[in-house]
């Protein structure tokens, strides 16, 4: 047992933060994601179980993105308004992660707590053909997980799910308290 080993080690925080412009071939990511789906599938009996696993993995990614992106893109400043954080997700997050903005952001007509984020052709689904007997499976739940973690982690607790509708639609359902707080802010 030596203590010197610990003091000499350079930790990740000693290194400068990368600019985040590194690139990797899409093939690599596609094959990796395919292996991830297979891995999750081997551990699941049903489609919902598989989706839960992918969602959970997405959340692990999302949590890490929060600090990374807010420090790098926003000088450490977080959003406090609901609409702004949604726009952050639609623009900044999407652009940095996937190279372009999400296609559309809509507010639900029936439920003021619900927003829809639409994307015609999510990156993760590009090379996935869904088997007919599992037609409800949408592997973009992985991305839904990322979004959920980012929203929840920045103080806007929400549930985010992915659905087949006009391509893929992510349904963002905020906790009621979030919307109430936002209204309160606006009144001031």
């Amino acid at each position: 047992m030596s203590l010197s080993g610990r003091t000499n080690k350079t930790s990740i925080l000693d290194k400068p933060l990368s600019k985040g412009k590194g690139e990797v071939s899409l093939n690599c990511f596609a094959l990796l994601f395919s292996e991830i789906v297979q891995y999750c599938q081997n551990k699941s009996q049903t489609v919902p179980e598989l989706q839960n696993r992918l969602h959970e993995l997405g959340r692990k990614v999302g949590v890490k993105l929060i600090d990374l992106y807010f420090v790098r893109e926003r000088g450490g400043k977080r959003e406090i308004k609901l609409l702004n954080i949604l726009l952050f997700v639609k623009s900044t997050l999407w652009k940095t992660l996937f190279g372009r903005e999400a296609d559309k952001l809509e507010h639900s007509n029936d439920d003021e707590n619900t927003y829809y984020l639409m994307e015609k052709d999510p990156l993760v689904n590009k090379y996935i053909s869904v088997p007919r007997d599992k037609s409800s499976l949408n592997c973009a739940v992985f991305i839904a997980g990322i979004v959920e973690a980012v929203l929840t982690g920045t103080g806007f607790p929400a549930k985010v799910t992915a659905h087949w509708h006009k391509g893929t639609t992510y349904m963002v359902k905020f906790d009621e308290a979030v919307v109430a707080r936002d209204k309160h802010l606006e009144e001031k």
Binding site: G20, E23, S25, L32, V61, T96, G99
Partner: peptide, 15 residues
């Protein structure tokens, strides 16, 4: 046909 490397890094890390 490139993706952001952090997406790959973090996805792999999550796995």
């Amino acid at each position: 046909k490139k993706v952001n490397s952090e997406l790959v890094t973090l996805t792999y890390g999550a796995l």
